[in-house]
Design a protein around this nucleic acid. Structure first.
Length: 407
DNA sequence: TCTGGGGTCCTAGGACCC
DNA sequence: TCTGGGGTCCTAGGACCC
C-alpha cells in the first residue's frame, strides 16, 4: 500500500447519475418527462429515482408506498438488470482507455488512478473528456470528483452531482471538507450521525476538533481514530488491483411469511442453489457459511459455521444450511426473509482436492454442473430441483416471493 | 408508509494453545 | 500449583455503502 504524494497520482471518481433510472428512461424515452423510479409499482423500495421524482422528495431506499404518497403521479418501473450490467460494462471499457488502474466500486461507480508525470493530461481535463464520451456513446450522465485520495475524490463527486465535475487540490481538502454537515462524510451513517449530534457535532469541522477522549468514549478506540482521520481528509488508500469478491450471498424476502418447515426448506434450497451456481461460475470454493433469518416482526438473527473443507457443492452447502437454520430458529416460524452467504473464498485452482474412495461428493458435483448448464440454456424458471416443485404443494415458480428480480 | 438485495468491514467475547 | 499475557480462531451482531 504505497502512499503516493497527492500531486503525483490524483484519484478520479466517476459516479453515474441516478443510474438505474437513467438507463431505464434512456431505453424508454416516454418516461424521461415524468417523475419515475425503478423498484416496482406497488411494493418494495425505490432503488433509484429520476431527478423529476427527486423534486418531490423521492429518494432511493424509501418504500414505494412512501414514494407514491409524495408523488402520486410518479411511475414505478421494474428494474432491467441485464441492461444495467451492460451499461456498467460499457462505462468500464470507456474508463479503461484513460487508465490501466480502474476499479469498479459498484455497478455505477469507479475509481481511476491517473497516469502521472510531467506530460500527463491534467486530471480535470481527463474528467471532462470522460463525461463527454460517456454521454456521447451511452446517452448517460455522470459526475466526476478528483482528489488526492479516494475519500476526497468520492466526496467531490457527491458535491458535483448531478452532471458535474469537481476537483479538490491537496491543499484545499480542509477548506472543502470542514464546512460540510457531518452526515455528508462517507463512513458516517445514520447511527454515527445521531451519536455525533448528541455530542454537539454538526459539521465535519466540528468532528475534526472533537477531543480524542470523547471520540474514543463514544465509538471505541479504533473506530474513534478512524472517524478523526476521515474528518481530516485521510481515507480510502485501498489497493487498485482490488481484493475481488470476499463472499457470495443471496437472500430472498417471501411474499407471504413462511409457515411450514417444508416451505422454509424449499426457499433455503432455492437460495443455496443460486449461491452455489454463482460460486461455480466464479470458480471459487467457500469455507464459511452464514444463514440469516428475518421474522415477521422484522427481528433478525444469523448464525454461521466453518466447514472442514471448502466447497461449492450445492448439496453440501444445503445440508449445513439446514442444520444452521434449525439451530437458529429453534422451532420458530413466521419467516419473511431467508439469506445465505458463503465467505472465506478461495480459487478452485488453488485448492488441492483430495477425493476419498467412498466420496459421494463427485456425483453431486456433476449434478451441479449439469444443472448450471440447463439453467444457462433454458433459464432459471424452467429448471428447478424436484424438491422445489413438490414442496408443500407449492409450485417452484409460485413460491411466495416478494423479491424484485427473482425469476 | 410497513420497511429489498448485494456487498464489505469491524467489534467483542469466548475457546484454545503456548 | 497457580497466574498472566498474547495470539489465533470461531461466532454473533452491527454499521455502512450502493
Amino acid at each position: 500500500m504505497s502512499e503516493q504524494p497527492a500531486a503525483v497520482a490524483p484519484i478520479l471518481h466517476v459516479d453515474m447519475d441516478a443510474f438505474y433510472a437513467s438507463v431505464t428512461q434512456r431505453d424508454r424515452p416516454d418516461l424521461a418527462q415524468v417523475p419515475m423510479w425503478v423498484g416496482g409499482a406497488e411494493r418494495g423500495v425505490v432503488l433509484s429515482a429520476n431527478y423529476r421524482a427527486r423534486e418531490y422528495g423521492v429518494r432511493g431506499g424509501m418504500s414505494v408506498a412512501a414514494a407514491r404518497r409524495l408523488c402520486p403521479a410518479g411511475v414505478g418501473v421494474p428494474g432491467d438488470f441485464a441492461s444495467y450490467s451492460e451499461a456498467s460494462r460499457q462505462v468500464r471499457e470507456i474508463l479503461q482507455t484513460f487508465s490501466a488502474k480502474v476499479q469498479m466500486a459498484s455497478i455505477d461507480e469507479a475509481y481511476l488512478e491517473l497516469p502521472s508525470g510531467p506530460r500527463a493530461v491534467p486530471a480535470a481535463e481527463v474528467g471532462a473528456r470522460i463525461r463527454a464520451i460517456v454521454f456521447d456513446e451511452l446517452q448517460l450522465t455522470c459526475s466526476v470528483g478528483i482528489g488526492p485520495n479516494r475519500l476526497i475524490a468520492k466526496m467531490a463527486a457527491n458535491a458535483a452531482k448531478p452532471d458535474g465535475l469537481r476537483e479538490i487540490a491537496a491543499d484545499g481538502v480542509i477548506e472543502f471538507l470542514h464546512p460540510l454537515p457531518v452526515e455528508a462524510l462517507v463512513g458516517v451513517g445514520e447511527s454515527a450521525a445521531a451519536k455525533l449530534h448528541r455530542l454537539g457535532v454538526t459539521t465535519i469541522g466540528d468532528l475534526a476538533q472533537l477531543p480524542a477522549m470523547e471520540l474514543r468514549h463514544a465509538f471505541g478506540p479504533h473506530a474513534g481514530l478512524g472517524l478523526r482521520a476521515l474528518a481530516w481528509g485521510k481515507g480510502g488508500q485501498a489497493e487498485f488491483h482490488g481484493p475481488g469478491s470476499r463472499g457470495v450471498g443471496c437472500q430472498l424476502t417471501v411474499y407471504r411469511d413462511l409457515a411450514t418447515v417444508q416451505d422454509l426448506h424449499a426457499v433455503l434450497l432455492r437460495v443455496i442453489t443460486k449461491v452455489g451456481s454463482r460460486m461455480r461460475a466464479a470458480d471459487v470454493l467457500g469455507r464459511r457459511l452464514t444463514v440469516g433469518l428475518r421474522y415477521a416482526d422484522f427481528t433478525s438473527a444469523s448464525t454461521s459455521a466453518t466447514l472442514s473443507m471448502p466447497t461449492d457443492v450445492t448439496q453440501e452447502l444445503y445440508q449445513v444450511a439446514r442444520a444452521l437454520c434449525a439451530k437458529l430458529r429453534g422451532g420458530r416460524l413466521g419467516i419473511r426473509r431467508v439469506g445465505v452467504r458463503v465467505t472465506e473464498l478461495s480459487d478452485r485452482s488453488r485448492i488441492a482436492i483430495q477425493p476419498r474412495l467412498d466420496e459421494p461428493e463427485r456425483g453431486w458435483s456433476d449434478l451441479d454442473r449439469v444443472g448450471d448448464q440447463l439453467i444457462l440454456r433454458f433459464g432459471r424458471g424452467k429448471v428447478e430441483r424436484a424438491v422445489l416443485t413438490k414442496a408443500a404443494g407449492v409450485a417452484g415458480s409460485e413460491l411466495p416471493d416478494r423479491s424484485l428480480d427473482w425469476r
